[in-house]
Structures are given as C-alpha cells and as structure tokens.
Nucleic acid binder design. Structure first.
Lengths: 219, 219
DNA sequence: TTTATTATTTAGATTTGCCTAAATAATATT
DNA sequence: AATATTATTTAGGCAAATCTAAATAATAAA
C-alpha cells in the first residue's frame, strides 16, 4: 500500500497515543499532530477505508494489525536514522528528532536493511527506545519518567522534553547529556529540588523545574 | 525561502536542461518531469513570483542567480547521498538514483555539511559528476557521451541510461560496470557495432543498441 | 433529568499541483 | 503571404490535505 507522508504521520501518532490498546480520541490526535479535529475526522475516514484503523463515528480510533505493522515500520526507519545521525554524523540528541522525522519517510526496505546492517543492527536508539526489527518485533519500551518522579536511585538520562536554549545551556554546563548516568542523593521537600551526583563530579542540586524536563530510566 | 518538493524538482530540472545558458522550453521541461505542458506553465508563474526563474510568456525559462544557487544546493545534496549509498551502504550505481532523489529533499544545511565531512568531502559522485561545495562552487562537468559517439580511444564507463534487467545482465556478464576502463578497438560501419577491450579480458563486440546506452568519458 | 459543557462531525472553502480541452501564439511549409 | 503545424497558454476541474464555522452527539453538572 502506498501511503502519503501525511498518512504515515497519522499512523505513527496513533500508535504512539495508543500505548497498548487504548482508544485514541479525535482531539488528542489533533493536538499531537498540531492540526484541527476536523482534519483528523477527514483523515480517519481515509485510513479506515485503507483498513489501517478501526473507526466509528464518535467512538475513537485504534490501529488494525496492518496499521500496527505500518507504524512499526515507520518507527524502525525513524530510530535507525537517529542512530545514524548520532553514531556516524556526531549529532547530539536534541538535534536528531526533526531530521529523523523527515528521513523516516524515504520508503525503501533495502535502504533500511542496509542502513541497519551498517549500524550493526542496533536494538535501541540514542534515546534508549527499542528499534523494531524488519518483521516489526521490538523489545518492550523501558520505563521512562521525568527525573522529579523517578523512584530508583541510579538513573540514566534518556531525553529532555524542553528544548529551550536556557535549559540546554544549563545541562551543558553541568555535563549532563544523553546517556549520562547519575545517582539521586536526596529530595528536598521544601522546594522539591533534587540533589544528584554524576560520576567524577561533585554533587549538585537542581530545581524541580529542571527535573521535570529531564527524562530518565533506571540503570 | 521554503520550497516544496515539486518546486525543488522543477528548479533542478531547469538547471539540468539549461546546460550553461540556453532557454528551457515548456515542452522540454514537461517531458523531463513527466508532466504536462500546462502544469509547467502553472509552475513557471509560481517560480517567477519567487524570483527563482526569469519567465515571459512564450519566451521560455532561465534560472535567476538565486535559482541557480538553489539548484546547486539540491544537486549537492543529491550527489552526496549517492556517495553515501555507494561508499557506505554498498549500493550499486544503478540503484542509487531514485533513492538519492528522495533523500535530496531533506533540507538541512547542517546535515549535509556533516554528511560531506563524514564522506571525506568528495568532489565527484559515483557517476563521475562533480559535487558543488557549500557555496555552490563546482568543477566543470567532465565531457560525457554515449559509447557509440565517443571519439576518444581510452574511455571510462560513467553510467548506463537504460535500466532494463536485460542490459544490466549483459553488462554484468561482460564485467562492465561503473568505472570500468575500456579501449575502443574498431567501429564496424556495416551495423555500427563496436569492438572494445577491457583490461585482462579478450576483446568483445557490442551492438549499436548497447553502445547507445553506455555513457563514457575520456580517461 | 434537564441543562450546560465538551467532543466530534459536517458543510463549505482554500491551496497546491496536477489534469484535459480549447484557444492562441509562434514557427514552418507551401 | 497564406496556411498548416507545433508550442504554449488559458479556462475550468479534480484530489489531497488542510481550515473555519456551524451543527450534532456525548458527557458532566446542576
């Protein structure tokens, strides 16, 4: 089946919002895709026609198994390109997403399989997310929370949700980047600040606001 | 300026057809882009509006200097991706064009400059065509003709224009591939067949039809 | 259980890039 | 120079993907 870029983006977003088997609402999808609910309704009819989603008026959207297959293919392409950008072209974690967003729409099974081989068939991308194999098989996503809500002591940084230069500059100054391992020393209830320690660095205290924008998972 | 993929393809084709400073006709451009003359007229108005081309009704099309700049950027992206596909992913010359055709539309100055660095800043692509640098400077394209019209004796294969499996199989059987050097031994006027010799191979005779589809340049 | 609120859909436009068919301009032929 | 041919443009439409505004359905609140 030949999908437009718009259709691929819808399928990918539906997959993302489903998180297992939840029904995706028109509004949620519109918000995710930065478009209007009316546009989502239009596209939903088209994707239903193509048997990529189950959709009944006012009942929300879920992917069919074919839709899931397509979504996993797109996610595979996206994450492999992210690996390429980081491993080979030395891009940093905060730059790769939008580039991969474009590269993922180049549809060629052969290109992707060669790219995967070239990269050593990686199974996780630079954000720590699992990469589906050619058949759509993928490891379970590892739990990921914002630093202020993490309950484990030893953590690894997987992403930052706020791309403001102010935050990036702060993180840079503190040598915190993707993959950085850290240990939580203390939570201060007074202002919800958190004391953390990086290897070979003195402990530092970061504000709740910063902690909310740092995604981590247990290591 | 933000161009659509369609607009980029028009600019690239106009550049290709101009070959220096010739005026590009509506019909020629329609043929090149596999579209209809009426569509070309529509787009010509748009590109004129954006100051990428000079265009007056019935007078044909030429690129402005800005249009040339844009074209060279696209060609740079295309040829760098071709290098990547051949050098890093081991694609063969006949497979890369259409992939590069898609990859070239990912617009990121940074991506391309890093890709170029990664590839060792190549100055010619796998077809032997020169790659413009970041400022649009490019070596003169080297003369390239079909084998049946070449007048030099020692030649190197730069492309095949017919992608039929029959021709590719033939070339494969004769060990003729991109970069193969050959020597023209004789032209037979009777049927316009040509006798050629590859290093470490006995001389072979190829038909006019095959020769027409093999592009070469003097070595 | 009415009423208010929120979510969703429909109707009708818009833009982009393309098309066909018909009209017009440019060029070639007699 | 008049006519035929070819090239180009215009006019009018279509499909994809979006939008706004209005209508309707579902859900929450009184």
């Amino acid at each position: 089946m030949n999908l437009s870029i718009a259709e691929e983006n819808y399928v990918k977003s539906i997959y993302k919002l489903q998180e297992g088997d939840a029904v995706v609402t028109t509004n949620a999808l519109a918000y995710e895709l930065e478009t209007k609910p009316a546009s989502v309704t239009d596209m939903a009819k088209k994707l239903k026609e193509k048997k990529l989603i189950d959709y009944e008026k006012y009942k929300g959207i879920t992917l069919t198994s074919e839709g899931r297959r397509v979504a996993l293919q797109i996610i595979r392409r996206h994450r492999l390109w992210e690996c390429f950008l980081v491993d080979k072209l030395a891009f940093s974690w905060e730059e790769i997403h939008e580039l991969a967003e474009e590269l993922e729409h180049v549809r060629s099974e052969k290109l992707i399989s060669r790219l995967s081989d070239y990269l050593g068939n990686p199974v996780i991308d630079p954000h720590g997310d699992p990469i589906p194999d050619a058949h759509g098989k993928m490891a379970k996503p590892r739990p990921q929370t914002s630093l202020d809500q993490a309950n484990a002591r030893r953590l690894v940084v997987t992403a930052v949700t706020d791309q403001s230069t102010a935050l990036l500059a702060f993180l840079n100054a503190k040598s915190i980047k993707l993959g950085t391992q850290l240990e939580v020393i203390a939570h201060y209830e007074y202002d919800n600040s958190i004391e953390i320690k990086l290897k070979q660095h003195p402990a530092i205290t970061i504000s709740e606001q910063v902690a909310k924008n740092i995604m981590v998972r247990p290591v």
